[in-house]
Design a protein around this nucleic acid. Sequence first.
DNA 1: GCCGGTCGTCGAAGCGCTTCGACACTCTCA
DNA 2: TGAGAGTGTCGAAGCGCTTCGACGACCGGC
Lengths: 334, 334
Amino acid sequence: MSGRTVTIAQVAKHAGVAVSTVSYVLSGKRTISADTRRRVLDSISALGYHPHAGARALASKRSNVIALVLPLRAGMHVPVLMRFASSVVTAARRFDHDVLLLTADEGTEGILRVAASALVDALVLMDVELDDRRVPLLRELAEPSVLIGFPAEPAGLTCVDLDFAAAGARCVEHLAERGHEEIALLGAPSVVYDRGTGFATRTREGFVAALDDHGLKGVALPCEETFDEAYETLRDLLLDRPGLSGLVVHNEAAVGHVLAALRQLDRRVPHDMAVVAICPDDVAERASPPLTSVLIPAEEVGREAVRLVMDKLEGRTVPDSTLLTPLLAVRAST
Amino acid sequence: MSGRTVTIAQVAKHAGVAVSTVSYVLSGKRTISADTRRRVLDSISALGYHPHAGARALASKRSNVIALVLPLRAGMHVPVLMRFASSVVTAARRFDHDVLLLTADEGTEGILRVAASALVDALVLMDVELDDRRVPLLRELAEPSVLIGFPAEPAGLTCVDLDFAAAGARCVEHLAERGHEEIALLGAPSVVYDRGTGFATRTREGFVAALDDHGLKGVALPCEETFDEAYETLRDLLLDRPGLSGLVVHNEAAVGHVLAALRQLDRRVPHDMAVVAICPDDVAERASPPLTSVLIPAEEVGREAVRLVMDKLEGRTVPDSTLLTPLLAVRAST
DNA sequence: GCCGGTCGTCGAAGCGCTTCGACACTCTCA
DNA sequence: TGAGAGTGTCGAAGCGCTTCGACGACCGGC
């Protein structure tokens, strides 16, 4: 509001107290009388004071900024990533922290840079690969970090994610309950499996294991994200397995194509083919018909990641691994 | 690399020079002999020195961070937004700046906070509405800002965007050249028009004006983003206008549905219906058939926004308005 | 009535960096 | 040969904040 950068000294003068008193009012680290506190707070809002972030960081060794490392690689579904990202920002603000956005082009260099320069206090990493180049660096860093997703060797790291194995299994279970005996999983594009991305692999493992448990026949296939490729995959699948009556789709970008392809192939949903999706709620709801789905709790994951990283910042010990239980919402497609 | 935070004083000692000399080597603001410079740079890498961001910001009054304000509102196509965002990050790094991510939930408060606390030097705002609540604030701020998109009253602001009016017109022109006489624009969801978002409105205006110029018949309609709604819109449109032979689709999320609906309605592309899309290249290429499209040059827009904001930071004067010329790529759909 | 213990506040010492003025040199040119 | 103009480097003064130790004032207990 007012002219040029207001400093804590001006606030102190205006309120008739010492600079340190203003600081203690703001941080609450020492008791301040109600009267003084009010005078100080009044002065702060009268002058429109905002503490200088750099000065604060220098003196307190805390920048109140966390890094969000978001590679945005091929085959990742961007809207889903953004829901994570957005919930990380919201959650961070609750802890009075801001979020610095790091993308992949700088590689691990960028992580080192923002950590070593004390630009950030802590890091949240998304889109984690099984064999992730960032992981060794994280182990060396003094700054705490939390991964959204699991690398192959998560020992000593803090990871949080939906329990995708349980999600895959939950879909099978649901279809088994509905009496289906032969089902298929259409997953991520094959490039995602090739890269060894954890969530895709783990869903498939959970799916395959559950097939066994329930005595069902079935198969797990990758699924590309163009209509034509999805169509072909599905057509071949139906030729191969005429008894197929249930489909689990774990691919937000392809789910629309799969439904269109089923339409084209004259399979009605759910009458001729039951479909369960693993995707965010809004995608499932907007499909036609609305899809029974295991929702990806993006908000919860982001919030949890921030909570964990803040706990680590405060020196509290946190569990290495946090798996969120999948929830299945029944809609019109099964 | 090394133990704990290395300071400039340690580098100076290691290199046998004064602290200020190290600083000048880093900033290049005074001439330093080649010999000294080398000794200093060697010490820097030997010790693994990274300047403390907070200290630097405090002393230099520059944080080397810019804010990216990204509301993520309903109806916006997230992957497109993220390409902008990602190119902003990349471009900012070229200028040795990092990017702080701000979302909408804090409202204009957040903008004021990061600017007043000197957390950021400048701001880039995305997803600008015609009547944007953030605009008045920007005018008051000492920090320079650039908008990606145009508000209704852009005087005194710096705005950059694709020239959507020209894009709409370019599509019409292309279809006119191909001999089509009656065409339609399927645009954003109606909520986006209702909100008065600039790019949707301006495309429509360009489209309508070009219709006139080329003596074509046609109509511009909003288009929702579920298959069913897109299907209905299209079916009604075809009933209404049996002579319709060309379609312009300006809606990344719906373009797949429109193609699926045309398939379902037995209209082959491009034989029975020519389709031009306004969307990123990869969406156009991945469609079946690949779509003739006006590409949204996300990378270029982001880069340009950063260039402008850096120019303003340096005190250079910049044009109020930067419109990027649309480029049409002909593919299989026309 | 004195002692020890909070409570509330202050002053000062940094935090790690940039930048300004000063200064010792080395060249040039008169 | 000496004045003037660069060069290259240094020391010190901040930048705005947090935090530590100090110190009155006030409390209850003996």
